[in-house]
Amino acid sequence: MSLLAQLKDAQKDAMRAKDKLRLGAIRMVLAAIKQKEIDEQVTLGDAEITSILVKLVKQRKDSESQYRDAGREDLAEVEANEIKELEAFLPKPLTEEEILTLIDECIAASGASGMQDMGKVMGLLKAKAEGRADMGKLSGLIKQKLSA
């Protein structure tokens, strides 16, 4: 079942259950997908939908930290709940061991020999790890491997 179909089914279930929080989060994702499809005049696949989900989760995490810094725990809690709902549709996160193996494979596949090849490695890695690992953390690990 495609990710879009899963989202639409979850939307129907949330409507039936009268779960306003879950329904709002799912509608937000579906609206972002529809907007991108209309803007680019394409039909999005699972990879593109996953990248939209990753972007929305990142935005929610930023908002949550800003709300907490401002002392608005009520709004931060709403953002945290939306993050939980959105993450349910993301692929299972990679373990630390899988991440290190994947980085080694991408470095070998790209023939990277130093920091100047970081972009090549990140390009390969992004395709394989999008939505399954924090790209900022991966970047740091790649820098360690390439500079060593």
Rank of each mutant, 00 (worst) to 15 (best):
S65K: 11
A88Q: 12
I33E: 11
E85Y: 13
S51K: 13
I103K: 02
S110N: 05
P91H: 10
A47C: 02
T43D: 04
V54Y: 11
E97D: 13
E64L: 07
E82Q: 15
L102K: 02
R132S: 08
R60Q: 14
Q35F: 12
A31D: 14
K34S: 15
L94N: 07
T95C: 09
D46H: 07
A80W: 05
K120Q: 07
A76P: 08
Q116K: 12
D69K: 12
L30M: 15
I99F: 02
A80E: 13
E130A: 13
L146D: 06
K128V: 01
V42E: 13
T101Y: 06
D19V: 07
P93Q: 13
I83M: 02
E96N: 09
M122S: 02
A47W: 02
P91I: 07
D117V: 00
Q144W: 01
L146T: 01
D134A: 04
E64R: 11
E97Y: 04
A109R: 12
T101V: 09
K36D: 14
E105I: 03
E40N: 14
G119H: 03
E77N: 14
I38M: 14
Y67G: 06
P91Y: 10
I107C: 04
G111L: 00
K20Y: 04
A88W: 08
K34D: 15
M122C: 02
S51M: 10
G140P: 06
L100V: 02
R132P: 10
L90Y: 05
L44N: 11
T50H: 09
S63C: 08
D117P: 01
E105D: 12
L138G: 06
I83P: 00
R60F: 11
Q116G: 05
Y67R: 14
D104G: 11
G114Q: 02
S110K: 06
L75A: 14
S147A: 01
A129V: 10
I83K: 03
A17S: 15
P91F: 12
A47S: 11
I142D: 08
R27W: 08
K55T: 14
L102M: 11
A70Q: 15
G131N: 05
L125F: 10
V121R: 03
Q144A: 07
A127H: 08
A112T: 00
E105S: 07
N81K: 15
I107S: 02
M15G: 12
A88Y: 10
E79Y: 05
L102C: 07
L124A: 07
L100P: 00
R16V: 15
E37W: 13
L86A: 01
V42Q: 13
K137G: 01
Q66I: 04
L90K: 04
A25C: 14
S113H: 01
M118P: 00
A76F: 09
E82I: 12
T50Q: 09
A108Q: 03
L23C: 00
A112G: 00
T95L: 09
K84S: 05
K126T: 01
Q35S: 13
P93I: 08
L86F: 05
E40W: 10
I49Q: 08
M118R: 00
L124C: 05
D104I: 05
G24I: 09
A70H: 15
M28K: 15
L53F: 00
V121W: 03
L86R: 03
L94G: 04
G111W: 01
L21C: 06
M135G: 02
D62S: 09
